[in-house]
Amino acid sequence: MSESITIPEQTLYLPIPTPVTAVRMLTKTECLITVELDPDRIEPYRPGQFFMLSLPGIGEAPISVCSPPEAYPRLQLCVRRVGKVTAHLHQLAVGSTIGIRGPMGNGVPLEQLKGQDLLIAAGGLGMVPLHALINHIVKNRADYGTVTVLYGAKEPGELLFRDELLQWGSRGDLNLHIAVNIADEDWMGHVGMITTLFQYVSVDVAKTAAVIVGPPVMYHFVMQEIRKLNLPPERIFLSLERRMKCGVGKCGHCQINEITVCQDGPVFSYDQLKTLPEAI
């Protein structure tokens, strides 16, 4: 990996034109965009960080890193079609160019996770940043203890990275539990909220860290289960979603109390969030 690059202040809001090398639909509403970053202008990224993606005339949107740091300078971004910018991102063709700013935010504290048992809980699109983390773990498996992944989705059709889920499940060194709220005819797995997967979880409190990413409503319920495990709050990490315009701590949209999610987050320890009203 290259050394950290000093981004000149003058280019704070300037998107770097970046070629799209692959586009693949993952579900009906999510597509996976692969781009090739310019290593002279964009520094390596970590799981939990995000990039501002933009198209001239359409606008800009914050999108989570989906590929592990090892993929750099390749970058994968999973985009759900929910608004104007994302609808246009879905129409990208291989060979086209998008604007990229980043990486932004703090990311998952990989150094702190090293040597720990890991409990990873992904709700819905929360699997996107965790896909980056899980792939990083898989590539550096010896650095971590027991790894348990809980993944909850609304329905089987919304499960992301299905081929990789199969691979992870058959590795033997990764405990993967998947739940869907509503099953279809073909679904043979667990049915229920992600919280019902905690019955399969047992942790060694002394050496376990948890990383949880999902929609705000999921945090309320998952945190109740996590609390029952008695993990210390400073070893529980959550990623917060917020409206963001600038990504550099200026525009005020992602402010919670005295912090800005884009600069101080988006990953926080539960210890930090406990004293941050409005956070979840």
Binding site: P56, E60, C246
Partner: peptide
Amino acid sequence: YCFDMCDKMELSLVDGERRR
């Protein structure tokens, strides 16, 4: 000092600005 950012294209739809 909070601001919004949005794109404004000229009628040609090829040139334009990102504004705050």
